[in-house]
């Protein structure tokens, strides 16, 4: 038995050396906290990231081969969907929530506006399977990929096995998304001491720290928690957020706190995309808070901001736009693979 195991492990070692050599080093700002994603269980390799990138941009994941992940998570919108309040799916179906921006995902411990998903590996199952998004099953996706000529060799390179499996599809998709790190905004250059804020931005930063930082916590600009930020229910959607998952009354109307990075690329805002401008969001916090039993304690009273202060705050928020990330070729459509 022991000899058998030794022989097997030598064979698997040789195979793994032959196929998986190129580890991908995830780089991020030194002032970022430790990632929450467990990279030991799914170590990044260039081959897996490449495969994940092909899958991310390939509409083969949807039932009628028309919608890819990038349809609603476009690289030019910081992987959100500018202009669309609610997400789109196959056959022009419209969802119930705004497609969130995808970056810095290694620092999240739950996913979706309501935290329905507990691990990045499993996140893709939701849009793939949702009838109003991709309307497909992971089982069919696996079969379709097996018969599309480009994929078996990519799976072989990435996982040492040309047989496509659900596990490998999901892990590869997670790997590509993990490489989407946004830490190159002006704010980051200031943190690194390369430039300084203008007086207006500096004033906006002070206001941000006073009024916003407890939920939109630096340097990721989200605390990863759920909160009711005082939005009245849209009665065309009746979306109660986190409550749908936990069925606990204290979770009614709580939604995941989104990051404030890349706001210029990710409008409209809020879980249902109800606000088109950053200014509208600030106006909500100064005069639109709708109180219920679950409203965040920081928002029990409207924020007090003058018109000039709002302008300064917006100036600061724009320093969180990361052009380097949004226009980085390496995250974009993999022409060499998908044509």
């Amino acid at each position: 038995m022991r000899i058998g195991i030794t022989v097997l492990s030598i064979i698997s070692f040789v195979l793994s050396v032959a196929f998986i050599t190129d580890y991908y080093k995830l780089e991020y700002a030194e002032y970022f906290p430790e990632p929450l994603y467990n990279f030991e269980k799914n170590p990044l390799t260039t081959e897996k990231v490449t495969l994940g990138q092909a899958l991310f941009y390939d509409p083969i994941l949807s039932e009628d081969n028309t919608i890819s992940c990038s349809s609603c998570h476009s690289p030019y919108n910081a992987f959100a969907h500018t202009d669309h309040d609610l997400s789109h799916g196959i056959r022009d179906s419209i969802g119930t929530r705004n497609a969130p921006a995808l970056f810095n995902l290694a620092w999240h411990e739950s996913f979706m506006w309501d935290g329905a998903i507990n691990h990045l590996d499993m996140q893709s199952l939701a849009p793939i399977s949702h009838p109003g998004e991709m309307g497909e099953t992971i089982k069919n996706v696996v079969e379709k990929l097996q018969y599309k000529a480009i994929y078996p060799p990519l799976f072989l390179k990435a996982f040492g096995d040309s047989t496509v499996t659900g596990e490998h599809v999901l892990k590869a998709l997670a790997q590509f998304q993990l490489t989407l790190v946004s830490d190159g905004a002006k704010y980051d250059a200031v943190k690194r001491g390369e430039v300084t804020f203008s007086p207006q931005e500096a004033n906006g930063y002070a206001l941000f720290q006073k009024h916003c930082n407890s939920c939109h916590t630096e340097p990721l600009f989200t605390n990863g928690q759920f909160a009711n930020n005082g939005l009245p229910v849209d009665t065309t959607l009746n979306d109660y957020g986190r409550w749908i998952i936990t069925k606990k009354s204290e979770d009614s109307l709580l939604f995941k706190v989104p990051t404030l990075r890349n706001l210029s690329y990710t409008f409209p805002y809020m879980h249902d995309g109800r606000f088109r401008k950053i200014r509208h969001v600030l106006n909500h916090y100064t005069e639109g808070i709708h109180l219920t039993s679950t409203t965040a304690k920081q928002l029990k009273e409207n924020l007090e901001l003058t018109s000039n202060e709002k302008t300064d705050l917006v100036a600061f928020l724009l320093t969180l736009d990361d052009k380097n990330f949004v226009f980085d070729q390496k995250h974009q459509y993999p022409k060499a693979i998908l044509n």
């Binding site: 799914n42 329905a116 691990h119 939701a126 596990e167």
Partner: peptide, 20 residues
């Protein structure tokens, strides 16, 4: 703990998709 293969592979239809 994320994705697993074999009998635990989500293609077996034993993993919820709308929540984990």
């Amino acid at each position: 703990s994320g994705a697993f293969g074999g009998d635990l592979d989500p293609t077996n239809g034993m993993y919820w998709t709308w929540q984990s």
